[in-house]
Design a protein around this nucleic acid. Structure first.
Lengths: 227, 227
DNA sequence: CGCTGGCGTCTACGGTGTAGACTACGCCGT
DNA sequence: ACGGCGTAGTCTACACCGTAGACGCCAGCG
C-alpha cells in the first residue's frame, strides 16, 4: 500500500507507444478500421483519449505505426535457392497477414508505410529476384506487380516518388535512410538515373502486369486443366 | 413573373438523384473522398444537407450511386475478333476512369457495386473471354485476376458470394436480377453447382493470379529486353 | 522545501451523419 | 373556391469524431 492513490487495485502499467499500437491493432481486428477511434482506443486502455497523444502524434501517426506493425508481421522465409518458391512463400506470408487483418489493406494504402519493416520486406523481394538472376529493370517491374497482387493497390509500399528534382540534401537524406538496404539503394539509384526506366512510369508498370496476365492467360487457353 | 416566390433570380432547378450524384462525383474529384460530406454537398448544390435525403437514402446510398456512376464511365470497346486486344482495351479504359477519379478505388472497394453498370462490365469481360475460346472455369479465374489488376482489390466487383445456402426465393431473385446477362448467369450457375470450382475459393483465385505472374516473370528472365 | 517535467484528465470547438418536426408550395377532388 | 395532401427543402438536435489548450497529480531532484 505504498503507492496507491485511492481504491486502485492495480498500479495501472503505464502507456507506451508499443502498447497503444498493439491495442489499436487489436481493436481494429475486432471492429474494423472504422471502430478504431481515439476515444474507443483510450477506453480500451482504461485511459482518457487525450492521454494517447503523449505517445502518438495524432491519428495519422497512430495509423502509420499500425501499418508498420502490420508489415512487420509478415514472416520472411529462409532464402532458398529456388527464387520462385521463395517469392511465392513471401507472397503467401504477406497474404496471410492481410487475411488476418482484413482492414489493413486500406490503412496501408492511404498511408505510405516507408518504415523499416516495409523496407526490409522490399529488400527481401529484391534480393530474391536478384539471386534468381533478374536484371534490375525486370526486378523493379516484378516488385511492382507482386506487391500489387499481394496488397491490392498499385502504388507500391515504398516509393512515394518524391519531387521530380530532389534537392541535394533530400537526396542525401534518402541515401542515409536507405543504408542497410543495398538492393533498394541500387534500385533507387538506377531509377533516379532515369536512363533506363524513366522515373518509374505508372502506366508502364500497369501495362507490364497486364501483359504478364494476358500472356499467361493465352498460354492457358490451349491446356485448360493443368494449373 | 408568373412563378416567383421572392427576390429569386432563377427558379432553382429542382434536385434529382442524378444531379446529386453528379455533384458528388464532382466534389470528390476536387477534394478527394474525405471532402465528400453531406453538408458540403448540400452547400455545393445551394441546398440544406437534409434536402439530399429526399433523393438519396443516406450516405451509403450516395456512395453506391457514385460507384455506379464511376463504373458506368468505363467505355466498352467494340467487340473485335482479337480477344487479347479487346481485353486490353477494356482494362485500359477502366484504368483511365480510375486515374480520372483517384478516390474511386476506395469507394468501389468498400461498397460492393453490383449495379447494372458493374454487371454490364463483367458481362463484357466474360463475353470476350468466351469468344476467345476460354472454358468457363478459366474465364472465371481470368475475370478475377483482371479485375484485381485494374481495380486493385481482390474481391471482384460483383460476387459478394452471398449466404452459403441460398434460399429458393433468394436464388430466384438472383436469377431474375441476372436476366440479360447470359455469361454471368452461366457463371453463377456453374459456381453454385460447385462441382468444378468449389464456391469460388479466394485462396485459389489468389494463387491463380500469383502463379500467372511468377510464370510470366520466369519467362522474362531469359529474354529481358523484349517487353 | 519548492521546482520541474512527465503523464493523464477535462473542457471545448468545429466537423461528421442523420432522425424528426416544421414550413412552403403545387396539385387535385369536391 | 377551398380544404386536404404529397412533395421538397429547412431547422434543430443528438451522438460521435479528432484534437488544441489548460489543468491536476505525482516522482525526482536541487
Amino acid at each position: 500500500m505504498a503507492i496507491q492513490t485511492g481504491a486502485e487495485t492495480e498500479p495501472r502499467t503505464p502507456l507506451s507507444r508499443e502498447r497503444v499500437l498493439r491495442a489499436a491493432v487489436d481493436l481494429a481486428d475486432r471492429g474494423g478500421v472504422e471502430a478504431l477511434s481515439m476515444r474507443k482506443l483510450g477506453q480500451e486502455l482504461g485511459v482518457d483519449a487525450m492521454a494517447l497523444y503523449r505517445h502518438v502524434r495524432g491519428k495519422d501517426d497512430l495509423l502509420d505505426g499500425v501499418a508498420e506493425v502490420i508489415v512487420g508481421e509478415i514472416e520472411r522465409p529462409a532464402a532458398g535457392d529456388d527464387w520462385k518458391a521463395t517469392l511465392r512463400e513471401l507472397a503467401v506470408a504477406a497474404r496471410r497477414v492481410m487475411l488476418r487483418h482484413p482492414w489493413a489493406r486500406q490503412v496501408l494504402e492511404e498511408r505510405g508505410t516507408s518504415g523499416p519493416a516495409a523496407l526490409a520486406h522490399i529488400e527481401a523481394v529484391l534480393g530474391t529476384l536478384q539471386a534468381g538472376g533478374f536484371t534490375i529493370e525486370v526486378a523493379h517491374h516484378a516488385l511492382h506487380v507482386l506487391d500489387s497482387r499481394v496488397f491490392g493497390f498499385n502504388q507500391a509500399l515504398f516509393e512515394e516518388s518524391g519531387p521530380a528534382d530532389p534537392s541535394p540534401e533530400a537526396a542525401a537524406a534518402m541515401v542515409r535512410a536507405l543504408a542497410g538496404y543495398p538492393r533498394i539503394s541500387e534500385l533507387a539509384q538506377s531509377v533516379s538515373h532515369e536512363g533506363i526506366l524513366g522515373r518509374c512510369d505508372d502506366d508502364v508498370e500497369f501495362a507490364f502486369g497486364l501483359d504478364l496476365i494476358l500472356d499467361g492467360l493465352d498460354r492457358l487457353r490451349g491446356a485448360p486443366n493443368n494449373f
